[in-house]
């Protein structure tokens, strides 16, 4: 029994999504016009989307609407007029387009970079240096009902044994990147330990990244399988056949050109 008919926009969307997915996957064969088409569409759509988002969230919601509201409701008050300061600074950035007054853009960059640098210092010190050190130096023994005890449970990151591993890891990795002292004798052992910690962490990070890419791949394949059903007019299957045919035609045409 046939299922309910899908709305036209969903059906059209499925064909577009399946086609674009196959265009990008065609790169697995080799660089080809279909992939380039998909790649340029991706850049174009992403840029267009960023422009629309910036216009509505930044220019309209943060700038135009508050200023317009103040002009209508309370024109005498300063209110949102201060928002014209960042607007002017933003316009100064555009001075880069006119070589004669390009230096004006420096004021805007100075404002942004100065703010960023100032904000970064206390936050980096408190959140990323002091806090990280504080979290690294944990007590080895804890006072429980049975008196003092040290945890040997590897599964608990807070256990005493893991605290020792954590301290050794942090110190040895920091020492490995500390080049003011020559890595000889005990220093060499510490630096080598740091390398092993780094290798394990890089391996773990790599494995984690591979699995996240795999999950994206499964997601795309699952969509293609869904779009290959009769409900979607066998979109994925039809487009796969067309993609293969297009690639074969392109390959033959390229070989013909090379032969000439």
């Amino acid at each position: 029994m046939p299922g309910p008919v899908l709305p036209t926009e969903t059906l059209l969307g499925a064909w577009v999504a399946a086609g674009l997915t196959l265009f990008i996957y065609s790169f697995l064969y080799k660089d080809n016009p279909l992939f380039k088409l998909g790649e340029h569409l991706y850049v174009g759509i992403s840029v267009g989307y960023s422009v629309v988002l910036a216009w509505h969230t930044v220019f309209l919601r943060l700038l135009w609407e508050p200023v317009k509201k103040d002009i209508i409701e309370n024109p005498a008050a300063l209110g949102s007029y201060v928002l014209l300061i960042p607007a002017v600074l933003g316009l100064l950035m555009w001075a880069r387009f006119i070589p004669k007054i390009a230096w004006l853009s420096r004021l805007a960059f100075a404002f942004v970079v100065g703010f960023g640098s100032g904000v970064a210092i206390p936050r980096a010190v408190s959140s990323y240096i002091l806090k990280q050190i504080e979290d690294t130096v944990n007590p080895l023994v804890i006072r429980g009902a049975d008196g003092l005890s040290m945890g040997f449970n590897l599964a608990s990151p807070q256990s005493g044994v893991n605290t020792i591993v954590l301290v050794i890891g942090v110190v040895s990795v920091l020492f490995y990147f500390f080049f003011s002292v020559e890595h000889t004798g005990p220093g060499r052992v510490t630096a080598r330990t740091g390398i092993y910690f780094l290798m394990i962490a890089f391996g773990a990070a790599f494995g984690y990244t591979v699995m996240s890419r795999m999950s994206l791949l499964i997601g795309r394949f699952s969509d293609l399988i869904k779009y290959a059903s009769a409900e979607y007019g066998y979109a994925a299957l039809v487009l796969l056949a067309l993609t293969v045919l297009a690639l074969a035609a392109w390959e033959m045409a390229s070989r013909g050109r090379h032969a000439v």
């Binding site: 640098s117 990323y128 240096i129 990795v173």
Partner: peptide, 23 residues
């Protein structure tokens, strides 16, 4: 544990660099 230790060390190093650059 291991990845945390390495990330923590790298974070401390990067933050020190960030403070120096900001200054």
């Amino acid at each position: 544990v291991v990845n945390s230790a390495v990330r923590r060390a790298i974070l401390i190093g990067v933050s020190m660099g960030q403070v120096a650059l900001s200054l």
